[in-house]
Amino acid sequence: MLEFRLVQGSLLKKVMEAIKDLVTDANFECSSTGFSLQAMDSSHVALVALLLRSEGFEHYRCDRNLSMGMNLNNMSKMLKCAGNDDIITIKADDGGDIVTFMFESPSQDKISDFEMKLMDISSEQLGIPESEYQSIVRMPAAEFQRICKDLSSIGDTVIISVTKEGVKFSTRGDIGSANIVCRQNTSVDKPEEATVIEMKEPVSLTFALRYMNSFTKATPLSNSVSLSMSSDLPLVVEYKIADMGYLRFYLAPKIED
């Protein structure tokens, strides 16, 4: 059987809100390492990878590796019933066809359990090779969200260019064009407010803003976001989940016809 108890239940609620519009059904893989998920969006352009390490849970028991197929929209409906301060426990039996979500209020005066049917999902696990990136930009997550939202009112695609000068986000549409440049800025009070540019080589890649905006739904998970880019690899947009792991989005670049 498996049983995970997450004191900061709101993390799981935030993860679901971040991915449920991108991915419909997914297998959650449970092992002694942690709770993870890898899934592509329906058009096979983007891939989501989630890892919540076992050490981040207050209690984590997983007797044997288990793959639980879930409809993310249904899971989100259930997790929306948990209060933001609730402790969430996930339970399942080996070979069973249901998963139980238990919500406890912080004062322990309200305890709810919700059972959800599991599904058989045939999904291909893809191997994600470790890569060296030409450029990595770390910036405040809210700033990145604002940029993607602003640019999508003007164009459909964004060109992200990293040079010594900084990182430039550009778009073009029927009404005109826009360029937003963020320079490296490490002289801030809090490290999460910094913009840090690690450039080995300049890089310039084109992406669909529709996907970028979808990824920024993960903004409540983390104060900062990192963008890892190489000219021959998908973009990695990573939100670290404090003390537990990460939520990563991989997006294939658009190429010139």
Partner: peptide, 14 residues
């Protein structure tokens, strides 16, 4: 014009 590439071609199958 740009066309979208599929993500799976960058990763290892199986």
């Amino acid at each position: 014009h740009h066309s979208q590439t599929l993500i799976s071609r960058f990763f290892i199958r199986g």
